[in-house]
Simulated assay, not measured.
Amino acid sequence: MSARFLFIANGNGEDSIAAEIISRLPEGVSADAYPVVGAGGAYEGIAPIVGPRFEIPSQGWRHTKGSVARDVRGGMLSSIGPALSFLRSARGRYDKVVVVGDNVGPILCLLAGLKIDIYLDVFKSGFAHTYSAPERWLIRRTTRTVFTRDAMLAETLARAGIDARAAGNVMLDTTTYGQYDAAARRRRPLAVTLLPGSRATTGESLALQVEALRLLPEAERPDAFVAVAGGIAPDELATATGLRWERPNSGEAADLGRLVGEDLLLNLATGVTGNLIEAADVVLSQAGTATQQALGLGRPVITFDRADNRRKRMADEQALMGEARRLVPQDAHALAQATARLLADRDERARLGEIGAERLGPFGAAARIVERLLE
């Protein structure tokens, strides 16, 4: 088969999903990637980037209050014209068009007159935040096939006459694995993995997570791993936490060394989030996509609720994740108490892990999407 596809995504996590699907395309099928916002680093070595580049303050992260207003002040509206011009120029140049993200992509395609072959909605859930009538109209006008995260959503769209399919949570298929032996670094009976995120607040988030670990009694303190997102420098994390960075010496490509203090040691790694989640009994996470990956892999998650988080977004997320994610105040003592309780209760960890895997799974959506693309 010889074909050329265009992938449109609007956010860092969405770029990772699109890149994963592109990487699974067979020989003879080429793909261009258009990241609507951001640099599109996820496509490096996978697909050429096309279209106008535009950076916005939020980087597509809509959890914080006032993020849309800040983006508007940062010039977001000026990006719409170039985006529409590019999408209009794409008409007739590609065999198929794939959109990954929320409804921003379909809206842009509607305005540009560009038909979407597959829309991969990674935002909505049948547990919360279902489709409104205008959104169903938008999808019907722009899209041939929709892949949703769960069967409840697919049934809602099917009743509206839309070809909708529930193939699993594609975010889980983007979980990264690689050469990193977490077991060889274990010294204690239990372990936690810290996911401080990939944005401007990463250092601040890790500092609070570290403070919480320090509040645990030394005898009960677990081994600790940190999944470091691309573009985050270990020495910056050392500065944020007050720990000392020791450079790696294992020879493993993912190894970023350790953060060390008098009473604490954190193992750092990058590009192996799956390895680190599976090594953990509990995950402390301020991430977006990686939180869902941890839950889908059956690990209970504890997240502190930042004061600047949007209430509705957090409520929607919690409705999806249920008990599997414990939400605590932005306070080291509260985070430490929640962590200690879960580490001490094996049965509760198992119960929450089952809930997370059921609500956020299953794996396998990426393969189904590729099959549909190649039909």
Rank of each mutant, 00 (worst) to 15 (best):
S2I: 12
R4Y: 13
I8G: 08
N12E: 13
D15R: 07
G28W: 04
A31V: 02
I46E: 01
A47S: 15
W61D: 15
S67N: 15
D71Y: 01
G74C: 08
S89A: 13
A90Q: 11
V98P: 05
V100G: 01
L110A: 12
K115N: 13
I118D: 02
I118P: 03
L138I: 03
T143P: 11
F147W: 02
R149L: 02
M152P: 11
L153R: 02
L157M: 04
G161I: 09
G161T: 10
D163V: 07
R186D: 05
L194W: 08
L208M: 12
E211N: 08
L215T: 01
P217H: 05
E218G: 01
A224M: 09
G231I: 08
I232W: 02
G242V: 08
E246W: 13
R247V: 10
G251D: 12
E252D: 09
D255K: 00
D263I: 01
D263C: 03
V272P: 01
N275P: 02
E278M: 11
V283A: 06
G288A: 06
T289N: 04
A290Q: 10
Q293S: 06
G296I: 09
P300H: 05
V301T: 11
R306A: 09
A307W: 12
D308E: 13
R310G: 14
D316V: 03
E317N: 15
G322F: 06
R325W: 00
L327T: 12
P329M: 06
L342P: 06
G353N: 06
G364I: 11
E371W: 03
